[in-house]
Simulated assay, not measured.
Amino acid sequence: MFVLAAPGLAPLVQSELSDLPGVEVTDVGNDGRADVVLCTVDAGREAALLRLRTADDVFVELGRTFRSEGDKPPWIVRRVLRPGRLEAATGLWRSTNPGPGSRGRGGRAGRQRLTYRVVARVLQERTWKRTELRRALDAGVSDAEPSWRADDPAQIEVWALEYTKGRFVAGLRLTTVRMRQHGGRESERPGALRPPVAAAMVALAGSPPDHRPGRAGRPDSPGRSGKSRSAGLSGTLLDPCCGSGTILAEAKAVGWEVEGRDIDASAVSASRRNADTPHVQDGDARDLDLPDASVDAVVSNLPFGRQYAVQGDPAVWIADVMAELARVTRPGGRVVLLVPELPRSAVPSALRLRDRHQVRLLGTTSTIWAYDRR
């Protein structure tokens, strides 16, 4: 099998895959638009990959080959579209995608004519064009499954990718748009973070610590503004610029208690709906209404002037925000941020850089920064 992820997230996808029993990563590449992580999966454990939170798409592998074994699209397709693999992959697709056309061949839906489309991606077109590979793949699928009908959109998608120079892999996609969006958002806003990217950032914050004895509820204590806020609750993750609430939703899904703040009232409303939590309030990331060392982690997609502008000088704004995030995070906690640049001068001495991952999102390069709170 293989999975696709946002460019730059392959190491985090590999980490998530390593936690799955019966799964071993065998190769990693990039097809020019997405990271590609190939793996072997023990029989019966394939459905576990559909629960990956950092991946965009999951495929049943149909075959691999090299350009060096014959650099013509029809030859490549014959090698990656192995006999019997397409039928077996379709059986797995039926079992993981309930609905019209996905029941067994003997059932009423199983006798319906399935629709399919093909996708081809190549890293270079010096010897032939990507469209030639797509036509050859279309012909190969039609020959293997003559009862299928080409359409777009379609029930079945078969992809052939040059995932690293001279290496090809083909697969049948198991995931749907709803799976990729982790169920979807009730309220959409421009520039909303993709759920798998949010999940990867939450993963970098680590696992939520157990609740401390006697603190199973949400006790309140006065914040800097004098308002009542949760304080010292183990397992709390804060997003101080929560936007659509995607990070909060992903954090909740893996067991974190969440707190959200945003200076935009419409974002507060959207976050409350999307993350299904009342613990989102109006707030300025430069002056949070939270006590010192009151959260275990901070994870946020900071505005950097494309979709949403910051107030005042951006350099001053980021320095003020970083100081405030260091203040509210407990020692031993973590701060994970998505922002293209973080000048060293803006990072307080209480934060030590642990990791960073350059990612490409919607044609824009940015960086995920992970800091340990000293």
Rank of each mutant, 00 (worst) to 15 (best):
M1I: 06
F2G: 04
A6F: 10
P7L: 09
P7W: 07
G8R: 11
L9V: 08
L9K: 07
L12W: 00
L12E: 02
D19K: 13
V25C: 08
D31C: 12
C39G: 08
G44R: 05
L52A: 11
T54A: 14
A55Y: 04
D56I: 12
L62A: 11
R67P: 00
S68L: 07
S68E: 14
G70Y: 07
D71P: 06
D71W: 10
K72M: 11
K72Q: 14
K72S: 14
P74G: 02
P83W: 07
P83H: 04
G84T: 01
L86E: 05
S95C: 02
G99N: 04
G101D: 04
G106Q: 03
Q112F: 04
Y116L: 00
R117I: 14
R121F: 09
R126T: 14
R130Y: 04
V141C: 05
V141I: 10
S147A: 15
R149Y: 04
A150G: 15
A154G: 13
Q155M: 15
E157M: 11
E157N: 12
V158C: 11
A160K: 08
A170Y: 12
G171Q: 11
L174D: 05
T175L: 12
T176F: 10
G183W: 14
G183M: 13
E186W: 09
P196I: 01
P196L: 02
V202G: 07
G206Y: 10
S207Y: 03
R218E: 15
D220F: 07
S221E: 12
P222S: 08
S228P: 02
R229M: 10
A231F: 09
L238N: 07
A249Y: 06
E257A: 13
V258S: 08
G260C: 08
R272F: 06
Q281R: 13
D282I: 15
D287T: 09
A297G: 07
A297I: 08
V298F: 01
S300D: 03
V310H: 03
W317F: 10
A323C: 10
L325M: 02
R327L: 09
R330L: 12
P331L: 05
S345R: 13
A346Q: 05
A350N: 02
L353R: 13
R354Y: 02
H357R: 06
Q358A: 13
V359W: 00
L361S: 04
L362M: 06
G363R: 05
T365H: 01
W369S: 01
Y371Q: 01
R373T: 01
